[in-house]
Amino acid sequence: MIWFKKDILTNGDEGKSVKVPIGLWVKCEHCGEIIYKKEVERNLDVCPKCNYHFRISANARLNIVMDEGSFKEFDSHMEPIDGLDFRDLKKYKDRIKSSQKETRLKDAIVTGKGTINGERACVAVFEFSFMGGSMGSVVGEKIARAVEKAIEERCGVVIFSSSGGARMQESILSLMQMAKTSAALAKLKEAGLPYISVVTDPTMGGVTASFAMLGDVIIAEPRALVGFAGPRVIAETIRQKLPEGFQRAEYLLDHGMIDMIVERKLLKDTLSRLLSMLSQNEG
C-alpha cells in the first residue's frame, strides 16, 4: 500500500539531501490508482477515485466515530499470555512482542466508552494489523467487560470488527471467547440495551460466528469481506468457482444477512441516529 517505503533521498545542491517523508503516495488496492496520501486521509481513508474503503487502524476508527475528547479507554493494560506455550514456525510470545511493537497496542482490540454525536455507548474496535485482528483471550475478555459496563451504565454497545477469526495460538481458549462474548451479549439483550455490529473488511471465522452476527442492527462497510469459512478454503473444498462478489458486503445484503451498507463518511451519523432510536424510554 505504501508506494515509497524508504525515505527517498534526492540530490540537492552541494551534496545536501532533501528528505521526502515516508509513504507520501499510496496505491489503491482496488482501482490501482496512485493517490496522494494526504488526500486519502482527508477522505477518511477512502479512495477518492473508486470509493474503496481502506482498512484503518483502531485509532483512526475512533477518531472518525467518537466525539472529540469523549473517549475513555477500558483495560488498556490487559496483555495476552502464552498459556499453552504455543510454537509454530515462530513462538507465540515472539509474535505478541513484534505485534505490540508494530502497533503500540497490547492486543488486537481497543475498548472504552464515549459519545457518538452525544449518544453514549461502550465501543470495541479491532486492530487488524495486530496478528490479523485475531481473537484470543484478551479480545474476548475486553469485549465481555465492555458489554458488562454498558449494562451497568445503561448504554448501547457498538463493536467494529475486522478480524481473521479465532487466534490459533490460544487454541481452544480462543474458541471459548465466542461463547464468552455471546453470553455477555445475551445479558445485554435481556437488559433491553441496543447492540450495533459494524463489520469491516475482513471479518471472518469465529468473530463472525459470534458477536459480529448478533447485532440488533448489522452494518457493513462497502465491499467488506464477511463470512465464516474463508473463500479459499471453500473453493478448495467444493472445487468450484465462487460466485461473483461472494461474501462481500453487497452479496450479504442481497442474501439478507446484514441490515445495511454504510459509507465511512456517513457511519457516525448513522450510528448516533440508530442509538437514539433504539434506546428505551427511561425514567
Binding site: A183, S210, F211, M213, M257
Partner: peptide, 14 residues
C-alpha cells in the same frame, strides 16, 4: 455461507 452459518452458530451460543 449464503444461508448464514455464522449467524446460526452465533445465535445458538447466545
Amino acid at each position: 455461507e449464503e444461508r448464514g452459518q455464522s449467524e446460526a452458530i452465533a445465535t445458538n451460543l447466545l
